[in-house]
Write a protein that binds this DNA or RNA. Structure first.
Length: 652
RNA sequence: GCGCCCUUAGCUCAGUUGGAUAGAGCGUCUGGCUACGAACCAGAAGGUCGGGAGUUCGAAUCUCUCAGGGCGCGCCA
């Protein structure tokens, strides 16, 4: 309703400007005054109008305020400063609406949105960079759903690429293992298979560096895997499938789930590329190069040359899509895959059940038609897509969009969003703690990039275990009344909340320089701080024997007036803005705003909690008001945290 | 060489379409537990928003330029 009030205000002002000055402003800027006692909304438009109307801003503001008349939901408008128009809402009415929970259910949006995230190569354990991807993606899904959207979650699996091939080479060439040996390793309880492959992958990379000839083994493995129907391909399948399962388990610890896992093997075997290739040729997006270094390749014009409309496309402006040996590169497969996403390919995957979550949710995997199950849901064919992929792949993403445009799919290209984010790196100190020897050069840097190839990084599960252990100590010292299992459950919730919050508090395009000290901090701007605020609110209701959901709205107007009222009103006002924040997060693809909002709300509540005793409050009306305040904040803060995938433990 | 991103307090970061006195957290110093448990609160110190120029009534935000840092630019994925 906070937003409805803003819209109403904006419409009244626009109508007045048309009436009075014959001006039609497309959008009226509305912001929040620096302090709540100045009002809820501020309009700086008179500064802009001063020139057009040849009047002083303050004069214009006075005319607008005088001429506007009463607006439903507002108490009054005031002129402030050099010419701001500040609007004061009817606090009692807004508080009542909020306490009654009006306008909580979102309008259902048409169409379907596809969010792709995680997409870890299935050849090693997940690391902290993958966690950032999955947490950003999962949070964005929750935000979209909260805004009434129908969302499919996909996790793309590159099970036929070099990374899997490298681990196959590690097993066959370095460890001389057979498929049966690998199967035994997977079945063994002791070394986690994804951890084992993490080390093996690093060893293989090192082995390639020792002698370039060793790379021939990779070529052979890659070829065998793409062909299929041989021991190497079966070993690759075994490796990737077991590692995908471990990745799903890792993400399940954070309550991150998927609907569908499209695999590259099916994109190859179901001939997605052939269908896309034909379309690309038909639309003239690809052409066959006969000269120069790209002779014999099918190439695409790159952005600059295409935009300039140059007749002669120089070699530098070409992007090779099909190599001279006839094989298709990564971008080609990606174009085919995205045609499928938008329902433009004319082909579909086969589908098999892959994993069933404890809550009954089913995750599907792509399959050939022969092994597909008939009763699968309809995937793909969506109206908008968001690909959560790190910033380094921006160029490849742009190429896919260009290809769509080139084929005339402008609408789809416009609904293709590269949800780009920066990497998680390690501080030099953290790298040293992990036993990595740093060069002098590296000590001078503010962060050091992780590298799966070198086996250098913090594994996702190791971090989660460290967080849980650290939280557990604290829970043990505070809650002797709980048994071990209960304490562990509380520790898990707090630890996962801390982790998710940590990954969300930074804006997407800032590089996170990871350090255990920061990540293991539970005070201040952290997940546990926000969780704790909710627990405190819950404690009040538990002690008082009152159900927070049963708290009734009353006439709170008199408690929201004056200086004392302003303080608490700021809390109500912030709580009222949750829906607005959700929209803002979606419009800017920036979940960090949700984290900021949660922190602000928690901070204001903690302050309120400290200043006002509720249970001992003698005035019945005032106590009802304080209960209502706590109930609304508790509800809204819980809701924002849920959007971030953070649940609140019963005690802290 | 071309393209994208970054530079704000000692450290880590916010600052949405240009708006009122540039904000948090951590760290430092000071103070506050009688259970609505302090994973908290209050207060203090700390800023030429990388440098310079421009546009504007108004610039951390837009433009140009310089400096510093990062990431991409393959018949890899």
């Amino acid at each position: 309703m906070y937003k409805q009030l803003q819209q109403r205000l904006s419409e009244h002002v626009r109508a007045f400007l048309r009436r009075q000055y014959a001006l039609d402003l497309p959008n009226i800027v509305i912001e929040q005054p620096p302090r709540v006692e100045l009002g809820e909304y501020a309009l700086p438009l008179t500064f802009e109008l001063a020139k057009k109307l040849r009047k002083a801003p303050r004069k214009i503001a006075e005319e607008i305020v005088a001429g506007l008349g009463p607006i439903d939901g507002f108490d009054k408008l005031e002129v402030a400063g050099a010419g701001y128009i500040n609007a004061r809402v009817d606090r009692a009415a807004l508080a009542r609406a909020l306490a009654e929970g009006q306008g909580m259910a979102p309008e259902s949006q048409p169409g379907k949105i596809l969010v792709e995230h995680t997409s870890i190569n299935p050849n090693k354990a997940a690391h902290i960079g993958h966690l950032r991807n999955a947490i950003l993606g999962d949070t964005f899904v929750r935000l979209l759903r909260a805004a009434g959207n129908n969302v499919d979650i996909q996790n793309y699996i590159d099970n036929t690429g070099v990374q899997v091939a490298d681990v196959v080479v590690g097993f066959t060439e370095l460890e001389k293992k057979s498929k049966a040996d690998v199967a035994a390793l997977i079945a063994a309880p002791k070394p986690r298979f994804d951890y084992y492959c993490w080390d093996l992958y690093a060893q293989v990379s090192h082995w390639y560096e020792q002698d370039k000839k060793n790379l021939e083994a990779r070529g052979r493995a890659l070829h065998a895997i793409e062909q299929g129907g041989n021991e190497l391909a079966e070993m690759a399948e075994l490796i990737s499938t077991s590692i995908i399962k471990l990745h799903l388990e890792t993400m399940e610890r954070l309550e991150i789930e998927y609907d569908f896992l499209p695999r590259e093997s099916e994109i190859l075997r179901l001939h997605f590329w052939e269908a896309a290739f034909q379309k690309l040729k038909d639309h003239g997006v690809l052409y066959y190069e006969t000269q120069g270094k790209n002779a014999g390749c099918w190439v695409m014009r790159r952005a600059k040359a295409a935009a300039a409309g140059a007749e002669e496309v120089s070699e530098e402006d070409q992007k090779v899509i099909v190599r001279s040996n006839g094989t298709v590169g990564y971008v080609g497969k990606d174009i085919a895959y995205h045609l499928w996403k938008f329902g433009l390919l004319g082909r579909d995957f086969g589908y098999r059940r892959f994993h069933r979550y404890p809550n009954g949710h089913q995750c599907w995997v792509s399959s050939d038609y022969e092994h597909g199950e008939a009763d699968h849901p309809h995937f793909g064919d969506v109206s908008a897509i968001y690909n959560v992929i790190d910033a380094r792949q921006a160029e490849a993403q742009n190429t896919v969009v260009e290809a769509l445009r080139g084929m005339g799919y402008n609408q789809q290209a416009g609904h293709y969003t590269h949800f780009s984010y920066e990497m998680v790196a390690l501080t030099p100190r953290c790298a040293q703690e992990l036993g990595y020897t740093l060069s002098e050069d590296e000590w001078g840097k503010s962060y050091i990039e992780v590298s799966g190839r070198r086996g250098f990084g913090v594994k996702a599960d190791d971090l989660m275990d460290a967080l849980i252990a650290s939280v557990r100590k604290e829970v043990d010292s505070r809650h002797s009344e709980l048994n071990g299992e209960e304490r562990q459950a509380v520790a898990r919730q707090i630890a996962m909340g801390a982790l998710r919050y940590f990954m969300l508090k930074f804006t997407k395009n800032s590089v996170i320089a990871f350090d255990f000290k920061d990540a293991l901090s539970f005070e201040g701007d952290t997940g546990p701080y926000a969780q704790y605020a909710v627990v405190r609110a819950s404690n009040i209701f538990r002690k008082a024997g009152v159900e927070p959901e049963q708290v009734k709205a009353g006439d709170f107007g008199k408690f929201l007036e004056g200086e004392a009222g302003n303080e608490i009103w700021e809390l109500w006002l912030t709580a009222a803005q949750t829906s607005q924040v959700i929209e803002q997060c979606i419009a800017t693809t920036e979940p960090a705003y949700a984290a900021k909002h949660a922190f602000q709300l928690a901070q204001l509540f903690n302050n309120f909690y400290h200043r006002h005793r509720i249970i001992g409050e003698p005035d019945q009306d005032r106590q009802a008001f304080l209960f209502a305040t706590a109930a609304v904040v508790r509800r809204e803060l819980t809701r924002v945290l849920a959007l971030m995938g953070i649940s609140v433990p019963p005690v802290m």
